[in-house]
Simulated scan of single mutants.
Amino acid sequence: MSTWPDTRILDLLGIQLPIIQAPMAGATGPAMVIAASAAGALGSMPAAALSLEQLRAALTTIRQGSTRPLNVNFFCHQPPPADAERDRQWKNLLEPYYRELGADFDAPTPVSNRAPFNIGACEVVEEFRPEVVSFHFGLPEKSLLDRVKATGAKVLSTATTVEEAIWLEQRGCDAIIAMGYEAGGHRGMFLTEDLSSQIGTLALVPQIVDAVSVPVIAAGGIADARGIVAAFALGASAVQIGTAYLFTPEAKVTPSHHHALRNTQASDTALTNLFTGRPARGIINRVMRELGPINLSAPAFPLSGGALMPLKAKDEAGFSNLWSGQALRLCKDLSTYEFTRTLAVQALEQLKRT
């Protein structure tokens, strides 16, 4: 394709298009990663919801199906200390739903977990040597980060504030993902828990661009060519797109999630901590409406989802996380490959006219 106005990310990551397919835990599998990579974008495999054996199997499939650069994404949270009293209060709050739906309230509560980056995960990186390793919720401890960088991988991480971006650059990130308030899924915030600190993509990207020397990747509210053009105008070198890829046949979404994405207004999303204990943007459903999207009773990340699992099994639409960003009404039903290529062609055409 024709030359993009800023090729720093293309040169840094060895990709053809300044587009990163977002690593969406649960919804992204090898098929999406391979298709996005084939189209020239950076395919991204999420690891947080996978065991090490599952991750190895996924990466083996991807390496067999693609020779293009690969991004593997990890969470960097610290597992919370046990808090039996908070867990009990949370389940008690949900008891009326258990009774209504016929779920067994007295059965042991299922475990909801997300694996943080650790020695085992680092060994998988050393084994498969992905060209890019990205992190959410900050960065791992220095010894592990040094081992990742020693493989030759370029390191990306998410910033939701200027302060986080500066922190990431100072600790060796090769590029910063500037995640605006509009983005779906978990907020990447890690220096603060104050949601009032979170700002939109339009304001966040240029401030981070001005504050750091490494390339910046815009994320949040970008689902069509206009969003890419705007990101370049703000000083970004690339975009990361998530919600739009949930509309592709390669996305592993439940029937309820599939229906909600196509029948929900853009105003019907909210940040919620109910499903994991950490703020994440999703489509408003019954439990979010009735308990409030942010509820201080929810156990710390990633534990709150356990007590919701029996309810989700009875009423998936009302009690499961339906992650989505605010740009969902811009999304189209296209294959991952077709969407990525169409997006790039249209963006270049618009850039020529600017």
Rank of each mutant, 00 (worst) to 15 (best):
Gly43Pro: 08
Thr60Ile: 00
Ile19Asp: 07
Leu50His: 13
Ile62Glu: 09
Ile62Asp: 01
Glu53Tyr: 04
Ala35Pro: 13
Gln64Tyr: 00
Leu55Phe: 01
Ile19Val: 15
Leu42Val: 02
Ser37Val: 09
Ala39Pro: 03
Ala38Arg: 15
Ala49Phe: 10
Ser66Phe: 07
Leu42Pro: 13
Arg56Ser: 13
Ile62Pro: 06
Leu55Ile: 00
Ala47Glu: 06
Arg56Gly: 13
Pro23Leu: 13
Ala36Arg: 01
Pro46Trp: 07
Gln64His: 13
Thr28Val: 15
Leu59Thr: 04
Ala35Asn: 12
Ser51Met: 04
Pro18Gly: 00
Ile62Gly: 06
Gln16Ile: 00
Thr61Trp: 08
Pro18His: 00
Leu50Lys: 14
Pro46Thr: 09
Thr61Met: 09
Ala49Gln: 13
Gln21Leu: 11
Ala48Arg: 09
Ala47Lys: 03
Ala48Trp: 02
Gly65Asn: 07
Ala57Thr: 13
Leu50Thr: 03
Gly29Gln: 13
Thr28Leu: 05
Ala49Cys: 08
Ala57Trp: 07
Ile34Cys: 04
Leu50Pro: 09
Ala25Leu: 06
Leu42Asp: 14
Ala36Gln: 02
Ile34His: 02
Ala48Cys: 02
Leu50Met: 14
Ala27Cys: 10
Pro18Trp: 00
Ala49Leu: 14
Met32Asp: 08
Pro18Leu: 00
Gly29Lys: 10
Ala41Pro: 10
Met24Val: 05
Gln16Lys: 15
Thr60Glu: 14
Ala41Tyr: 05
Ala39His: 07
Pro23Thr: 12
Leu55Cys: 01
Gly29Ile: 08
Leu50Cys: 10
Thr28Glu: 08
Gln54Leu: 01
Leu52Thr: 05
Thr60Met: 00
Pro23Ala: 15
Thr60Val: 01
Ala35Phe: 03
Leu55Glu: 06
Leu42Ala: 06
Gln16His: 11
Ser37Gln: 11
Leu55Ala: 02
Thr60Gln: 03
Met24Lys: 08
Ala36Glu: 03
Met45Cys: 15
Met24Ile: 13
Ala22Gln: 11
Met32Phe: 00
Ile62Arg: 02
Ala57Phe: 01
Leu50Val: 11
Ala41Leu: 08
Gly26Met: 12
Ala39Val: 08
Ile62His: 07
Ala35Glu: 13
Gly65Ile: 11
Pro46Asn: 10
Thr61Glu: 15
Ile19Glu: 11
Gln16Asn: 15
Met45Thr: 02
Leu17Gln: 06
Gly26Asn: 11
Ala25Cys: 12
Ile62Phe: 01
Leu50Ala: 10
Gly26Ala: 11
